[in-house]
Each structure stands twice: as C-alpha cells, then as structure tokens.
Design a protein around this nucleic acid. Sequence first.
RNA 1: GCCGGAGUGGCGGAAUUGGUAGACGCAAGGGACUUAAAAUCCCUCGGGGGCGACCCCGUACCGGUUCGAUUCCGGUCUCCGGCACCA
Length: 837
Amino acid sequence: MEERYDPRKVEPKWQAYWREKGTFKTGQDTSREKFYCLEMFPYPSGKIHMGHVRNYAIGDVIARYKKMQGHNVLHPMGWDAFGLPAENAAIKHGVHPSKWTYENIGYMKAQLDKLGLSYDWEREVTTCSPEYYKWNQWFFIKMLERDLAYRKSSYVNWCPSCETVLANEQVIDSRCWRCDSVVVQKELFQWFLRITRYAEELLSACDDLSGWPEKVVLMQKNWIGKSLGVEVDFRIEGMDRSIRIFTTRPDTLYGATFLCLSPRHPFTDELVADKEGLRKIRARYGEVDEKAGLFSGNYCVNPMNGEKIPVYVANFVLMEYGTGAIMSVPAHDQRDFEFALKYGLPMRMVIQPNDTGAGLVHARHSPASGQPQGQPLQEAYEGEGVLVDSGPFSELESAEARDKIAEYIEERGLGKRVVNFKLRDWGISRQRYWGTPIPVVYCDRCGIKAVPEEDLPVILPEDVTFSGKGGSPLLESRSFIETVCPACGGEARRETDTMDTFVDSSWYFVRYCFQKNDPDIDSKLKNGSRETGYWMPVDQYIGGVEHAVLHLLYSRFFTRVLRDLGIIGPGEPFLNLLTQGMVIKDGAKMSKSKGNVVDPDYLIETYGSDTSRLFSLFAAPPERDLDWSDKGVEGAYRFLGRVWSVIHNNRDPLRKKGASVIRKEDLSDISDNGRGLLRKTHQTIKKVTTDMERDFHFNTAIAALMELVNDMTGFQPRDERDPGVFKFAVESMLLLLSPFTPHIAEELYAVLGNKPSISEQKWPAWDEDLAKEDEVELVIQVNGKLRGKMMIPRGISDEEIRNLSLGDEKIRTFIAQAEIKKVIVVKGRLVNIVVGR
RNA sequence: GCCGGAGUGGCGGAAUUGGUAGACGCAAGGGACUUAAAAUCCCUCGGGGGCGACCCCGUACCGGUUCGAUUCCGGUCUCCGGCACCA
C-alpha cells in the first residue's frame, strides 16, 4: 500500500519540469540583489568524476539557497574545451579533437543534468568554439598594443622525440610524461604576457581578499615573492665594464669574497677562456643536487673596500631572477658557504650575532688575509646582528646598516635600490594544435604584425592530420600558414603556436554575463556593458585548491587587464572563494591508476542523484578532504527513505487544508507534545540558516535536519493543534532540505498539495522566542568537575541558580565540610562551585 | 630547509565567544516483525572499576594560564599541503 521512495521515478520528472519551465533562467533584475555563483568549469575529458559531483553539488546548494533568499542568481556552466588530451585521443584513436571534445561535452552535459544542477544553460561557454576564442585573440591584440604581450627568446622544456614544449608539470624526473625521452632545455622564441607589470598590484590587493581562504592568499603572495634589495656594480679588473649584482643583504657587502655569474649570463662567453668548462657548467644549470662552479679567470673589485675578488660561474645562479649575478658572502649565506667550502674560497664574518652564539664568536676571519682565525664555521649565519670589519659601517645593527649602505651606494652612483619579484612573465606559446591560434603573422619585409581586428577570428583549421610523430599539425597546413601581410600585402606566414589553455579560463566568467547568443556581444564586450556592470564580480567561486596559484592568479591578472581596457569595472574577479577538498577513497585520491574510483553514473543509477549529493555534502565540511564510504551513501539513502515515508504515512492529514502557522499568541493552548516539535522546527531553521552563513557548513546543517526528521517520525498528534504543528515541521524541513536534495523536496512538496516549484519559495524564517527552550539543563560543577544536572526554568536569576545548586542534595555531599570560596554562574547554563578543603 | 594546516571513539565527523567532550551518520552488538531472509523499527555503543547509586581516566605528548582548556600560551612529536638554490 505504501509507496516506496524511488529516485528513478522522481528525479527525471523534476529535471524535465525545471527544463520545460525554465526555472533557472537568469535575467537582469535590478529590484533584487544579484548573486553570481560560479564553479570552476570542467575539462571535457569524457565523464564526470566524484570531484565534479562534489564541486557542483556545493555550488548548487549555494545557488539554490541564495535564490530562495531572494537573490537574483547567476549560475552558469561551460567547458574548458581546449587542451592536450583531445590531441592525444586524435593520435591514438584517429578521431578529430573537435569531434572527441564535442561528444564528451554532450555526454557530460547529460550527466550534469542528471545531478539536478540549477544551471542557466543559455549562457554556456565552450572555449574551443571560434565565437569564444576570437576574444582570446582580440584580448591578445589589445595586449600587444599595450606592450603587455611580447615575444622573446627563452629556455623551455623540450621533448626531442615529440618535438614539443612541455609544461613543467609534464616533466617527470627529467623525462617526457608521454614518451619517456629525456627532456632538454631549448632556447625558443615564445610569446609572453607581461603579468609582472601587475606584480605590485596583484600582491597588495591580496590584502583585500578577505573572502578567500588565507592559505590561498598566502600561496599567491609567496608565488609573487616580492623582495627589496640593492643592485651594485662590481668593476671587472682590467676591463672597462662592470658586473651588476642583486642582493637583499647590502649589510654583508664587506663579507663578499667572490662573485658568481649564472651560466646563462651574457658576459660568460667573453670572460671565460675555458670554453669546454663553460659548456659543462651550462649543462648543469639548475641542477639541484650539487653546486658546481668554474673560475672565470677574471677578478672584480668590491666597490666598498676596493678588494679584488675572483669571479666564478656557478650553476645555482639563476639568470631569471635579479641580474643573473650575485656577490657571494659565504659567512652569511648557506649556499655561498657550501660553494666556498667545495672550492676552497675564503669566508669572512661581518655580522656578529647579538645573542652571542658561542661558536660563532670565535669564527673571526682576518679581513686582510681572508684566512680564518679560530674555529672554522659550521654553517653560515644568516640572522641579524652587529656589523664588524665593515669600514665606517662597523658596529651598526644589520637592519640599520642595510639602509645606510644602500644610501651610500646610491649616493656614489655604485648602484640603486630595486624591488624584485619571483613572478615571471607568463609564457603562453604552445607548439600544439588544439588551442587558440596566436593572431600574428610574420612578414619578411614588415616583421611581426598583429592580425587586424576585423580579420578575427583566426580560425583553427580542421583539415589537418595527426601523425603522432610530434610537432604541431599546423606546421603541415599550408593553407593555414600561407597568408598575406596586413601591412604590405606581400607574402607572409602565420604564427603556428597556439595559446596556453589557461588563457581560455582567465576570463570565461566575464563571458557568462551575457546570453550565449547575444547578438550585440561584439559591442558589449568591447566597450563595457550593463551586463558586466551588473554581474561582475563573481560573488562566490568554488573549485579545487590545485588552482590556488595558476588559474586564480592568471584570472586576477586578466581581470585587471580587462579593467584597464574599460571592459569591466572591478579588477578583482572573485569576491569569495571556497576551495573544496579532494575525494579520497581507501586513503588515496580517487584515480584510475589507483583503481579506487566510484562512477557517478553507477551511483545515480543505484541511489539517485539526491543521495549522491546528500552524501558528498554530509560526510565532511566542503573545504576538507572527503573520505568516500559506500556504507555512508546507503545511510544517506536511508535518510531520504525516512523522509519519504514520514510524509507518505501521514499523507491525508498533511493534505488537509488548515493553518500550519503557529503564532506566539497560540502557544497557550498548545500541548507539550506540539510545543516540542514546534520548538525543534524553529531551532532547525535557525541552525541550518546559520550553518549556511558560517562558511557553508553543510554537514552540520544536514545533521540538524536529520534530528528534526527523527523527532517527526516519533511524533503522535494528540490534540487539535498538533496536525498543524506537524505540517509546519514537514514543510519547513522540505524547504530547508531542497537546496541539498532538490528532486525529493519538489516531489514531497507537491504531495502536500502545493504548487511547484519549491525552488521558487522563500527560505523559511525562524522565531527566536519559539526556538527557545522553556526549561534548560543546568550543569553543576564543583571545582570544575561535573557533579550534577538539574532542569531549571528559562530566565532564572544567577542568585536563584546559586541557591538551587547549593541546595541540591547530591551537590551537598561534595561540598560538605568544605569552605565555599567562590561560586561562578554562567548565565542560565552552568554553575561552578569552588571549594577549599 | 622555509611557509601553511591538522592531530578528538572501531570509522567519517560535532562541540558557534574558554563552560556538560563525542551531535549527526557509518560500523558493531542485542531485540522486535517474518516460516525464513531482505527491508523496516526499537535498544546499547570512548576506556577502566563497581552488585549498585556511582567513581576514576580520556581530545597526539609535556608543561603553563584559569574557578574551569578540545578551545588560549610555551615546548615536543607525527601526518598532510604548498614553495624550494629567488641571492
């Protein structure tokens, strides 16, 4: 007789309803406060995985919750559709990347729909479509005009067998991830975006990212890596030129005993006679295991003390940071120390620790000879202290000396103060096919020319062959390469490199502000528009922490460029960021290679998407890793089954027309029974609402709903008002549950005789008085230990609490024959009687 | 090495401002219903002691502050994440 919960019947029905009614279509509506809720879009790899389910369930709860709270919610979805896997599939299975990608999109879109996600698909973005990537090209040209895009020669990871550049992530133990060949460093011309122009702003604006996890902000700060220092010129002996070094420790200048050049420093060819030695040291550039050096045969003069010091070429000195040359102070820098030890170079102590570390005091070195007196150093002293053997700066505190010496250097024209960042310009050239063509042409007469705006997009040709030999198929496509120069009209060649796919994802959230087929997109996107003005920035962004620097930093950069182009207002794209944890099973991240994946299709088939969503939201708070448990999924399913039956078992009384709202004035004639459930209901509304507001603590919100349902199952109507209370409890519960498990909520809401849709209802409100307990449990402690409990009426005075607890029989046995020193009362909750013996 | 974060039952996790440690769920054990099983429902469930009312111990470890510490402070250990020759 009783109808059983069957998600396979319920879920498709409501998915169709939402689709047909356009429940989640979004428009501009200035009467409501906007809320832009965004989850990181997926790469269409073929199928969604549990990480997606979790990510999108979290986003969907937020979007639905905000909608019920009266916000005008933008909740879009799209596809990060360019990238290497499509090209690999083409090589392996002979299917065109485009076909492969669009088929995957079709399948995954159906999967997302089966999860009941509240997306407005009319704003869908697919980055591999010309309508989308033409904007990558347009932005690129604008950046070229502003000198934010430029071409330079640089070293890249190169796989000689695949004939392609590899990202750092694709180099595993110095080998190609695909063919296992040893990766070499190759110098290539590459296109770069000048993100470093925004380094200072990207860093200082970090302090305004109060809606981001601190951890992510910190990672961004470290990645940008600002440091203040001084550049100093060291004249090369016997030559009319200088080597410019960078240091953050000008206070140690007197301790410099040699100088090191990067193997890639432009002076090395000229300074080093030993070409074979130079070749060897260059091959060891960037090697982490061991420091290696080569004496250049030349000397420099320390501008501070006129001392002659040898110049080395050292493999650990990076050309990409500072000036590519350093002064070496082995006594105060551990790397220099190790190098000096290996090559027998002198060390000189010029900073004395303030708190006289005993061993260090003896490690004085004579400035004249550079020879040690006393014990040899065990390690470099990198801390602060007092300067010694530093000419006129001796006896200064190191912090002060940094300033004074920097000033001295600037006054004498020996160098200048500079700011350095670790952040490098973003190399976007990829020698690959499946990406946005970089819109430039090469003309023998006119040089490098941007493709004119009106000729965009430069379409990625589809008629290419995938040999699998490596190298971009575009190199073989004459119809693509051969073009005319926009300046002189003569023969010219197209750039065959494509853009890093991170370009695609750096601004996709701006595109969502418009309808997919907006006819005026051209003028709107170029000139700024009502749409971007209304929707930007994203109010809540949700995704994996693995993008803490790359994607999130690139997006912050791009948004600022777009701001400076007048396209959007604010420079910060994401107001609030939620980084969800990984999905773990059997102690490891779910992955095919580990064989511990759970297939969302199977899960939805077996338990339904409501159960899948519920479990992934209940098992852990969103930002933490989620331990997958098949048994736990069954528990979630059982809970929904209980929700189903508590309503179906009381179907007739629940459908009866009648007031389900109990006002404070009605409380006098309500039974204890009804009062209890009413109170619990208001408490649950409060708890769920505050948990949502408190960093989206869905797990405890769901736990509260479970408690309410437990109370409802045991509820027996005894008097006239009880059915109304029960109905109120049921309705509130469904409303609160609907963002988590929307299908069953819709279905049961309709069973109660309501018109759909529950997702268009208002979020319930609680009444603080109705939520309050009449009686509270008083905890009685003696000397901080729990010794008794008693029920007391709400609102009782501290004095009464004191008397009640002192009078309690059990408590008296604990305080007998003891002196009461103090009684501490925590308002209405706890009393602690402090006694001496 | 540097910078973060975390350590709570058999397990996932609660405890909102320093105030009852273990909500909710899973697993386990017992019971009801059933010819039986599944499903469902009910009870027990940190450790130790006691016939019992109850008592002692317990939030990684050591110490401190406090009437009272999972929470604050100092130190130690372990695990996880990020960066890593950045001069």
